[in-house]
Design a protein around this nucleic acid. Structure first.
Lengths: 125, 125
DNA sequence: TTGACATATTCCTATATAGGAATACATTGG
DNA sequence: CCAATGTATTCCTATATAGGAATATGTCAA
């Protein structure tokens, strides 16, 4: 029973490769009617509409009706949570600190922590 | 029929909030036995094992058997594709360029493009 | 109005997967 | 070998959702 209940979450929204394709079309920041997008990606119109709907619920795109068209535009700010989250790990590949050295440091730290931490206190319970 | 078939994709892997919790525990780069993680997050052991399995298949963690333990460690490089993908949109919120101005520029460009592009050629078909 | 066009929605079927419970498997100490 | 410990796997049920097809809805033009 997937109680996960994370629809409308931006992380879930971008998990779909098709959805990222749609986002790629919108990436230049301009607005597009649904059919414009349909022509750019290899998907049926209902699929595109559904994906746009999901992206909209996740706050990744904005929509405005214009005549018989619905113009969609990327709302990049909706992707910021993802950026903020993943940015934390950036240092692991940007500093090209010697991996061996890094690991040695971590192990030393680990050992210290185990001295205070092992079996006597088991986290907070 | 969700032919999506994107299991083992890092974007899908991190879509699960629980999985991000597990990653948060590993975020310091140190290695952890499964039970260490179980104690840190509020989840049953089988769930943690399953999530670790998914993260492992997605290349987000590495695992090494040590005695009867399995030590898991974050493989931050596995998250790089996400970082690279989302980084493209960074400029939309970092430059605090006047939104109105930005939009005007885009519209002008849009208009120009429509002159060459509308109805005459319909993308590549 | 009516018809053409643009887009959304609904119905269907199939897949993926979360979590709980029970259990299997693996490793080590004795 | 055996018991204990650490972890993975399997079975189950329920949810979320993708895509296709058909259709509904909305909006403009004449």
């Amino acid at each position: 029973m997937a109680r996960t209940a994370h629809p409308d979450d931006v992380f879930s929204a971008i998990a779909e490769p098709r959805r990222r394709e749609v986002i790629a079309v919108l990436a230049n920041g301009r607005e597009y009617a649904v059919n414009d997008i349909v022509l750019s990606v290899k998907m049926a119109q209902p699929s595109v509409s559904k994906h746009l709907g999901a992206l909209h619920r996740a706050g990744v795109v904005t929509m405005v009706r214009r005549g018989r068209h619905r113009m969609y535009r990327l709302n990049a700010a909706g992707l910021k949570p993802v950026h903020d989250w993943v940015k934390v790990f950036e240092r692991y590949w940007t500093h090209q600190i010697d991996e061996i050295k890094q690991r040695a440091e971590r192990k030393a730290l680990e050992r210290m922590i185990r001295l205070n931490d092992s079996s006597t206190e088991k986290k907070e319970e």
